[in-house]
Write a protein that binds this DNA or RNA. Structure first.
Lengths: 244, 244
DNA sequence: GTCTATATAATGATAGAC
DNA sequence: GTCTATCATTATATAGAC
């Protein structure tokens, strides 16, 4: 019902201003730490009006979710091509203006609610399609398990977003800034081009171990980690890998 | 002050039981959504006692942070070697028992407070050290920017943990399960061994573009993404990459 | 549509007995 | 150390006037 399209300006309808304010607050400080009164104040209306329009605080949240998903996905509809990725890129190219969206987007994904799931699924599908095309074109290696590879690459792609606070802190430059992008481009592309390991010893060992797993059914749990460079074989191995 | 070591059992001191209950609740539902009364009930004590021992709800949170960081890091002290990674692995090998710790750990990192920062820094250092050793031993490729590579690999390693809900949903098997580990091992190791791209076109293009950047100072923002496979050059490219 | 009260229900924290 | 009872505050949500 309440769904008036809005621009940033102050002259938008009250319902739209409320939703914009909510997205900003929810994204910046999280859902529970944000009060209806704060949102109302930001939007320049009374708290009662917020409830009047959206029924409840949770109703407002759902409206925010839906609006953002629509903004991110359905805008470009089914015009083929990676819709989300392009929108995201537009946001990242102007972090000044779209910071709120980026933060809310990250919050949604981390919270993993209704909207977050839809978004993730959509991203996953886009990534899988892109990988298929890449393999067909001969630009990318085929995978022994394309579905899971797409999943891992999607997750890895989202990681800097979810850990943007840590990233910003270590990098010294704000997430989304040109400087940060410049710094991260090469190392990431190097990894995606040459990999990390100089030979296939670790991979071969894992393959052998997993073969065994099929027989024994569950014995080879000793191969620790889960597929990260954090494997046992040989001396040094990434320790950051927490993921299974 | 309050710091009695505790085991899981029901017979631990009240202060320890309170802290254990708090870690479980905070990890499962977040800090703000958890009430002191809930924690008290779980621990089998009154709400007043919780405050009596920890001063305030926030004091309790800090105590939880400190305790978990100590449990994860300082236990093995400076005995060299990847202390955190090993502890994490022990947790993942028995998700049944350590689920609470894993969840709280993820919450800390995402929230990015005092404790989360310390943990992340520690993980980053462990990863960087491991990569250095790997390069020295000839097992891993050198990097044009080892510091940032370590950062990216650390972040990628944490990604499945932060997105464990999505991962579980898509995978169909719970995060930390042997089945999930089995499924993820090969695709991840393949990526870390062979990379994604079959040639270095994308990488070379980025190198050239970044050379230009140094001169112009900021022109080459057109190289979009940030170092993910999400680059422009050529047809298909990962769309999941949101990271800059 | 929008406001000013106000109701209602939690919550974090305190006081003081045992 | 631990409890019961209670306070003070704050939050969401409602009622009803304009």
């Amino acid at each position: 019902m309440v769904n008036m399209r809005s621009a940033r300006p102050e002259d938008a309808t009250a319902a739209a201003r409320i939703r914009d304010a909510a997205i900003a607050r929810f994204g910046a400080h999280g859902y529970e730490r944000t009060t209806v009164r704060e949102i109302a104040r930001d939007a320049g209306v009374s708290a009662a009006l917020v409830i009047h329009h959206y029924g409840s605080k949770d109703g407002l949240r759902e409206a925010c979710d839906e609006w953002l998903v629509a903004e991110l996905i359905e805008e470009k509809a089914m015009t083929a091509g990676p819709a989300i990725a392009e929108t995201m890129q537009r946001w990242l190219d102007d972090t000044e203006q779209f910071q709120h969206f980026i933060d809310y987007f990250a919050t949604m994904l981390a919270a993993g609610g209704e909207g977050g799931n839809r978004l993730f699924d959509r991203l996953l599908r886009e990534t899988a399609t892109m990988l298929e095309h890449g393999v067909e074109a001969g630009a990318m290696h085929p995978s022994s398990d394309p579905e899971i590879r797409a999943l891992m690459i999607t997750i890895n792609g989202l990681a800097p977003l979810l850990l943007r606070e840590q990233l910003t802190r270590v990098l010294g430059t704000p997430f989304g800034s040109a400087a940060a992008a410049r710094r991260m481009t090469l190392p990431t592309l190097e990894l995606y081009t040459d990999g990390l390991y100089t030979d296939s010893k670790v991979l071969d060992a894992a393959r052998a171990a997993l073969e065994g797993t099929i027989d024994t059914g569950k014995t080879v749990r000793s191969d620790k980690g889960a597929g990260n460079p954090n494997q046992d074989p040989d001396p040094p191995h990434p320790s950051s890998d927490i993921s299974p």
